[in-house]
């Protein structure tokens, strides 16, 4: 089981990367007034057939061959539903997949968001050929990180270079702090 929602995000986004996505869009939106936390992960990867889609929330279904269980999506679904929230997954072969989880923020069983910056940073630096658009919002304020923008400015300078990697980490932490004022949830 995951201990933070941000780890679920990392896990599910890894599926997008494995699906050959060129662009992965991740949105984390906290709205304390409405008592909702919405997390979505959208990709333009290979997508799933209707049959795969129907079974993807079944822990005993996986496309992997190393083992017979696949717990990533079921974990995320359960994490949302046990707070009284909702979970949905839409997919089309050749088009991509959209995963959306809505959490009731104040529910006692809601896991903390955790270190979401570390998740996004890991995804960006470990998948240098994939583009990411990350949008973080809190109570109506928001910021976006778009690696396509970064790439354009950087030319051929890679994301895993120490200075660039440090810039991405600072960009995430400073802008998150400005957006949510350091709220912990």
């Amino acid at each position: 089981m995951m201990t933070e929602l941000s780890l679920n995000v990392l896990d599910v986004a890894e599926n997008s990367a494995k699906a050959g996505a060129a662009l992965i869009q991740i949105a984390v939106a906290a709205d304390p007034d409405a008592d909702r936390l919405t997390i979505s992960i959208a990709d333009d990867g290979c997508g799933m057939t209707k049959e795969q889609l129907a079974r993807v929330t079944d822990p005993f279904f996986t496309s992997r061959t190393t083992r017979k269980v696949g717990l990533g999506v079921p974990f995320f679904k359960y994490a949302a539903e046990c707070t009284g929230g909702t979970f949905s997954i839409e997919s089309e072969p050749g088009k991509g997949t959209l995963v959306t989880a809505v959490f009731v923020m104040s529910h006692i069983d809601r896991m903390p968001l955790g270190d979401i910056n570390a998740t996004i940073h890991t995804l960006i630096t470990c998948h240098p050929d994939t583009d990411f658009v990350y949008t973080y919002s809190y109570s109506g304020k928001s910021f976006t990180l778009d690696t396509r923008q970064f790439r354009e400015i950087l030319g051929g300078v890679p994301f895993d270079l120490p200075d660039v990697s440090a810039f991405i980490a600072d960009y995430l932490s400073e802008n998150k702090l400005e957006t949510d004022g350091g709220a912990e949830y």
């Binding site: 780890l7 896990d11 890894e14 990533g72 270190d115 570390a118 998740t119 890991t122 470990c126 120490p162």
Partner: peptide, 22 residues
């Protein structure tokens, strides 16, 4: 970094390794 790895703490290990290598 599959579900099993992430759930048992692979993310901080990866972060530590990348940082130290740098």
């Amino acid at each position: 970094m599959a579900t099993c790895g992430i759930a048992s703490g692979a993310r901080p290990v990866l972060t530590a390794l990348s940082n130290l290598v740098q």
